[in-house]
Design a binder for these strands. Structure first.
Length: 575
RNA sequence: UGGGGCGUAGCCAAGCGGUAAGGCACCGGGUUUUGAUCCCGGCAUGCGCAGGUUCGAAUCCUGCCGCCCCAGCCA
């Protein structure tokens, strides 16, 4: 396992720490609250790590709550996907909830606001509401329906619930302040009419609560102490507090009775919303709209395409969940908008995989190499360690024979300066075998190198007298007669510009797609690599980290995805 | 003369009045049967700018400048 660096101090940890130490919040409760209207991506992983991580760190609990208050956008397929992704990342929720579990409570809470005279039914349509709202610099005006009496409001609201009105005909609004500089406080909508089937509650409700109303009350219902969300909700916080305070679930437990009756224990809290900055990554996009476009237009094979920044894509690509977690831990949490270098993530992936991926040999661009001084029939099995540093990972049997495949790039007739691999008349070490010398270069009619004839120095074999003789290069190989042909999918960054989502000067983010982000080739792998179970990670020595494809790989027809290449200072230098 | 946030190295980020942590990247060097890993060293006289307070300021005060978010019956 990769070594965990000390947790970086950040403001959220400090706040929670203080609340715990002062006794203000002896038990920490958090929640991860996605809307089930799409798939989770690496950006969501930051929130997941924070929500679940803080709870775990302070001995508290974290719920998974599906914020499903807008029917029509939400699908059961997404709620399943979200659960899978959170589990895969390595977290377990205390309770799985849906905001829709609380619809009855929300409704009662809304009736309470009506009775308290701080909510009213408005007949204005969407366009009129917009006109009355004012602008960023001008105050809004009161709706003509703002001063309706409590009885009329209550009657109207009940009829909204009974389904007597059509979509958009009426809304329930909070009576706050149409002149507020904070537009969220200009009589925000609490309920809208939407006669649409809901993914969890079917056709039971013709009206649905708005996010601002449902979210804070859901938090309170679940006894959430610290409610983390992203920066754009900062100006919603006054409204969050307004609803929590005016509804006052803790002081009106009758509102929560439906939950108690349903056997859902409930001790409402006064949750505190704390905002942090999202984490963006270079060379990719995270917006749901853009990701959806890539999927729908067939630019990628699906939500779990290994090039996608979705969690299912990262999984298929071979990014270990531990790497995603250590990545976000390393990045910290702050309120500054950021654009994190994709290389940091890759470094985390390499760190994790270096520690635990078994080594195997594979050749992606084969060139035949014959060890001419070995007998035609020479064949042996060498025992080779799975890891250069961790002996506990054991060994595997590696077949070796007279005819091998090596990497075409490991031979050069006219070597560039600094080249350490095989050249005519030159020597190089064959990994795990010994030192070979290139005696002859065989070419075809076009002058293309098709075969190398080499001789193996027996004294440099592991049991020989000159095992430790030094040569400058070591190359990898597979035995031609024993190697298994495999499909190898070489993945790279999805986009070839740092900020593909910018779309300046009328360009589309899709113009920045990296055409080489996926290359499918056929190569050869040693038998012990082909045997892998799906999702097994290997390091193909000198090439990179690969994973057996979750869906397409079988030992008979192996398919490996390149997760990330090895760090390559040679390629960088010779660039 | 709308409201809310944010400015510390190329990218993240700690710092909470006592003299700029750490990671990634980058540049040197060492070890190495993976040009990997690992190990050592270098990388902000400087914290958006300008003033002020103080023995002492990235930290406090004032004024500027820059960037982000908000006018859904989305979340």
């Amino acid at each position: 396992m990769a070594s965990e660096t000390a947790p970086t101090q950040h403001f959220i940890r400090q706040i929670v720490r203080e609340d715990v130490d002062s006794g203000a919040q002896p038990v920490i409760r958090t929640r991860f609250p996605p809307e089930p209207n799409g798939h989770l991506h690496i950006g969501h992983a930051k929130a997941i790590c924070l929500d679940f991580g803080i709870a775990a760190e302070f001995g508290g609990m974290c719920n998974l709550r599906l914020d499903d208050t807008n029917p029509g956008k939400e699908l059961p397929e997404f709620v399943r996907g979200i659960q899978d992704d959170v589990h895969w990342l390595g977290f377990e929720w205390a309770e799985l909830r849906h905001a829709s579990d609380y619809f009855e409570v929300f409704y009662r809470a809304a009736e309470k606001l009506v009775c308290d005279g701080v909510a009213y039914v408005d007949d204005l349509d969407a366009g009129q509401v917009r006109e009355f709202r004012g602008t960023l610099t001008e105050p809004g005006r009161n709706s003509p329906f703002r001063e309706r009496g409590v009885d009329e409001n209550l009657d109207l609201f009940r009829r909204m619930r009974a389904g007597e009105f059509g979509d958009g005909e009426k809304t329930l609004r909070a009576k706050i302040d149409m002149a507020s500089g904070n537009i969220n406080l200009r009589d925000p909508a609490i309920y809208r009419i939407r006669k649409q089937t809901h993914q969890n509650t079917g056709d039971r409700w013709p009206i649905y609560p708005m996010y601002d109303f449902a979210h804070c009350l859901s938090d309170a219902i679940e006894g959430i102490t610290h409610s983390f969300c992203t920066l754009e909700f900062e100006d919603h916080r006054p409204l969050y507090d307004w609803f929590v305070d005016h509804v006052d679930l803790a002081g009106h437990l009758e509102l929560v009775q439906p939950l108690l009756d349903a056997g859902m224990p409930c001790a409402p809290s006064k949750p505190r919303q704390i905002e942090f900055a999202r984490g963006n990554l270079t060379y990719t996009v995270m917006s749901k709209r853009k990701l959806t476009e890539l999927v729908n237009e067939g630019r990628v094979s699906g939500w779990d395409d290994p090039r996608m920044p979705t969690l299912s894509g990262a999984r298929r690509r071979g990014f270990p969940p531990e790497a995603l977690r250590s990545f976000w831990e390393r990045m910290g949490v702050s309120k500054q908008n950021s654009n994190i270098d994709f290389g940091v993530l890759e470094a985390c992936v390499r760190e994790e995989l270096d520690a635990r991926a078994h080594r195997r040999m594979a050749v992606t661009e084969p060139l035949k190499l014959v060890l001419a001084n070995l007998p035609e029939t020479h064949e042996e099995i060498v025992e080779f360690p799975n890891h250069p540093k961790d002996e506990s990972l054991g060994t595997r049997a590696l077949p070796f024979s007279r005819t091998l495949w090596i990497e075409r790039g490991d031979f050069a007739e006219v070597p560039p300066k600094g080249f350490k691999r095989l050249v005519p008349e030159g020597e190089v070490r064959l990994r795990g075998i010994g030192i070979i010398r290139c005696d002859a270069v065989i070419k075809d009619g076009q002058g293309e190198v098709v075969e190398l004839h080499c001789s193996l120095d027996p004294a440099t074999r592991p049991e020989g007298t000159e095992t430790n003789r030094k040569v400058k290069g070591t190359i990898h190989w597979v035995s031609a007669a024993h190697a298994i042909e495999a499909e190898i999918r070489l993945f790279d960054r999805l986009f070839d510009t740092e900020n593909p989502g910018e779309e300046k000067d009328g360009t589309s983010f899709k113009d920045n797609l990296n055409p080489d982000a996926k290359r499918v080739i056929r190569g050869y792998v040693e038998p012990a690599a082909a045997e892998a179970a799906p999702e097994r990670h290997w390091q193909f020595e000198r090439l990179g980290y690969f994973v057996a494809d979750r869906h397409d790989h079988t030992p008979e027809k192996p398919v490996f995805n390149r997760t990330v290449s090895l760090r390559d200072t040679w390629a960088r230098k010779s660039r």
